[in-house]
Design a protein around this nucleic acid. Structure first.
Lengths: 141, 141
DNA sequence: AAGTAGTTGCAAACAATTTGCATTTGTATT
DNA sequence: AATACAAATGCAAATTGTTTGCAACTACTT
């Protein structure tokens, strides 16, 4: 668990003002672990604390631009984000939405390989590598 | 370029009736090359031929279920699809949306590696592996 | 040629996200 | 500590992408 100081620091460094909504959202994202949408954050934080959904949207947008969080390409109807620490990928069950994470796959090597194959691109800022299938539980049915 | 016969065949095989809207959309997708959204298809086909946007949505949904097209996880506000032939991936310019394709990266090996790392999953039906960065033209600016 | 299930178009409903604007609040400055 | 200003918030309303309900229509079977 991180100290309040750290969160203030993160926001300051990103050039964002330290406001209650932002600190709340940031602390939540940092502790949560899994990816989450604006509406879900509002569900969990907003209802009680009077935090507006619109503010959550704007907060997430500014966090993303600052690199504090990153978008996850899940195949859902909404935009999902996750706290940006430790590069990893997902395996997602297409039936029950269960998620497992993995990393250390050597995808950097693949990117090199890809760059050699195409012309017109020479640097990559980020990438997606997510797997979809049935989890063992759903596969049994 | 494919013959009309082929498209009829594809639809028949998928258990879908051969209707003008479907044939039009299918022919367009098969010739287009790049990924595209429902609204864009409607722009290009619907306006002139009186093809309804709703029909495009439904057509794409049925094509996806039949495996004729597949979803592409671009970071856009809409759902994008592409004709499902030849497994490949994308490099997308985050500024001008230019796209290059590549394949043959050996991502199957990565998937194997990933599956060993996680528990609870043992088969993968599809995956995303797309790169984002600036194309050379945009990088110069 | 007729029957039927599947398909289409139109209007309306929905859901996620964005925008406009007046009010409030951090934070730098005095 | 008080002030000033740009930035952030909340509320309402507008947008945008997608889905649903339903009556009319059409491809395909017999």
């Amino acid at each position: 668990m991180k100290a309040k100081q750290d969160f203030n620091q993160i926001l300051r460094t990103a050039g964002l003002k330290c406001t209650p909504p932002r600190l709340a959202v940031l602390a939540f994202l940092a502790s949560g672990g899994h990816y989450i949408s604006a509406q879900e954050i509002h569900e969990k934080l907003g209802k009680k604390k009077g935090l507006d959904l619109v503010t959550v949207y704007r907060t997430l947008a500014s966090f993303e631009k600052a690199g504090i969080i990153k978008r996850v390409d899940v195949r859902k109807d909404a935009i999902y984000y996750e706290y940006n620490e430790g590069h990893h990928h997902h395996i997602i069950c297409t039936k029950c939405d269960k998620v497992a994470e993995f990393s250390n796959t050597g995808d950097e090597a693949l990117i090199e390989k890809a760059l050699k194959q195409v012309k017109g691109f020479s640097s990559i800022s980020h990438h997606s590598f997510d797997l979809f299938g049935l989890c063992d539980t759903c596969a049994k049915k």
